[in-house]
Design a protein around this nucleic acid. Sequence first.
DNA 1: CACATCACG
DNA 2: ACGTACGTGATGTGG
Length: 877
Amino acid sequence: MENKNRLLLIDGSSIAFRAFFALYNQLDRFVAPNGLHTNAIFAFHTMLSSLMERIQPTHVLIAFDAGKTTFRTEMFAEYKGGRSKTPDEFREQLPFIKEMIEKLGIRHYELVNYEADDIIGTLDKMAEAPDVDFDVTIVTGDKDMIQLTDWNTRVEISKKGVAEFEEFTPEYLNEKMGLTPTQFIDLKALMGDSSDNYPGVTKIGEKTALKLLQEWESLDNLYANIDSLKASKMKENLVADKEMAYLSQKLATINTNAPIEIGLEDTRIQSKNISALSIFYDEMGFAQFKNKLLSDGGLSELTETTKDEIVFEVVTDSASDFSVSKDDFFYLETLGENYHREKIVAFAWGNAEKIYVSKNLSVLTEMELPENTYDFKKNRVLLHHLGRELPVSKFDAMLAKYLISTTEDNKISTIARLFDVGQVALDEEIFGKGTKLAVPDDEVLFEHLARKIRVLVNAKSKMLSELEENEQLSLLTEMELPLAEVLAKMEITGISVSNDTLEEIGNENEEKLSLLTKEIYELAGEEFNINSPKQLGVILFEKLQLPAGKKTKTGYSTAVDVLEDLAPLSPVVAKILEYRQINKVQSTYVKGLIPQIAEDGKIHTRYVQDLTQTGRLSSVDPNLQNIPVRLEEGRKIRRAFVPSKGAVLLSSDYSQIELRVLAHISGDEHLIDAFNHGADIHTSTAMRVFGIERAEDVTPNDRRNAKAVNFGVVYGISDFGLARNLGITRKSAKNYIDTYFERYPGIKKYMEDIVREARDKGFVETMSHRRRKIPDINARNFNVRGFAERTAINSPIQGSAADILKIAMINLDKALIESHSQAKLLLQVHDEIILDVPQEELGEIRKLVKKTMEDAIELAVPLKVDENAGKTWYEAK
DNA sequence: CACATCACG
DNA sequence: ACGTACGTGATGTGG
């Protein structure tokens, strides 16, 4: 028993399908951070683990069907025909299931022209050869395989969920159906198989077939004695369908001599690839699996398994013997993310021949600096702190990866996996996370960095060829890399923020808040935490009995739109709205910003250049792209943002850039016309859509509605969304949209074309070939697909607008340098840039900025820039 | 650590 | 029938 080999053969296709449906109702809950559905992957893992635990196999093979056509379809074209299309949400998970299996140290196999059954049948037969000693367990969702049970083989059929199986042995089959395994094939021959779509004999189902087999034992014997059957409709059918019965028999028979290229020894379980698995679990969002992996001794194994030899040299001081070239890769490590505050922990450089690692900063100040980087902007800022200027990078692996695919993050470990260029541990494994964040021993630290360099060196050529293929090379070298330099400069410059002004606003807010709090408690009749939607819900909808409208996952919704509807019903609601508004300003923008003011009196945000799905930037630590502006209460915060001495703030923004981009890429003549005539675009839309002849006759309400329609168009309009936004019925919203498309046929065509393009290519592009993958575009779920379609429509618009502002920023930076101006770029807010401009330069720079932005790119319509200058950001608007 | 809420374009 | 507008980040609550 101990020495016996136990072979587990799994029908991967069938089990994966079962797994998918076992958690089908949880489809929306099982979504990876990158948006991939993971319900089947998760359930497959669960099933596999429990099988391994229970059966304790020494050998495992997971077989998959290779494709639709097999030798069986050659015999019978309709074989497995008529099946409904496998759901996209399932299909997209299969490659990941296979990837996971590999990382678990288990073999999977598929063979062109054969089904998983045949691969399993063939291996099962091998396991019965006289010179080997195996117990075999076959696991599948498909009853056909019951025919394989014999003295050393049990067949487990998945019944329900992930854990229930029915176990077939020859004894059990006999007990349950009165059949031998061979008779099971003849049963199928007679009764056919509706799911595999072969008919058997007309009018013979399971009952009749069983009866016939009990009497005649086999199909051959039955037909040999067919004359002795007494005349009946059944006999006629048997005679008429004899050929089909034998064909069905052939179809039902599992091929145990498939030309597979693997043997029993290939199926022996290998050790898990702990580091790869750990990364995989992270990407899938499988926290439990990962925890179990690491707690089961994975952590210690991890360090061993990744020790696949990496050779590097530690440089202790600048007198050491080392070499460096500008063609090398360079990498800088910090402990935390905010490089404006962080210290350099260590750094590394190297090429395919040699890798160096060091933590001696004097080496860094003196050495030549390579031009291949990972996160050039971060390096630039950190080296600036050391008083060094990192030379312009000619390749940034982080940005390159971002341009190639936005679907995943751009960590080096991810690059390693995607481009298959070596192993690196996750940073969390080396440095810990949260409160446990710490620098490890030099030995661990240095090796980690050396591995990173190796991955970068190896990945570069692969990334370059992919960029080239995608026509994205200039996007990297002429847009993102130059932009990184501009952004580094902006971040280093920072914007001055007056602590005193914030304090003043804060004091006023505190007074208002304490008064409001008192009033709310009084009106509510009790004290509670106003910041808790849960407690607030109880007060409003239970105690005060206000009508609860929308619900959230966790209870009553107390969002603004709900409260606004409720305001007329109880005076407390208006107070709560006011409290919310002020409290938001207070917590996020007063208490949030004050500690972000550095010693130089400035706030240095970080622009994240490799995050958004569309090509926009994001701003963090703090976010300076969402400083209040719409409501006066919050807008006051902008008074705290001030220029340098003797300067003013200049804010320049593109007017209607997204609609202009849409006019250009759609080529719609009417939208282009409107912009070319300098029309107020919403008024113009109102006139066309509502059939108003003269601009003077467009009422403010007409314009408001047209504006909402225009927004909707950019977002990938739906009647539902427009109706909700305008508070009108879906029917009239649909009416608006229909009329809009009628009057702007070019826009309609754009939308249809771009969705089709997304379906054909799997991605959409901006004007500068920035890509966004749209994997869900063929999803069968209405919601998921609808979302993907709107994404396909919106991304080229939002993304092209982002490209344009990036170009403008690069050009403007250059123009400012060339004109020896002291003006400085400070902030970017998607369609707007804010500069610090010396008073005496204002007249000239205003013009320069406007011109540079308007000339950034030539479209079918003009670009228009509005600008405002002032002594604070508040006034520059 | 997920969720609700709300700030911006 | 299905039930959503596109793209972000920060804060506070509560399990």
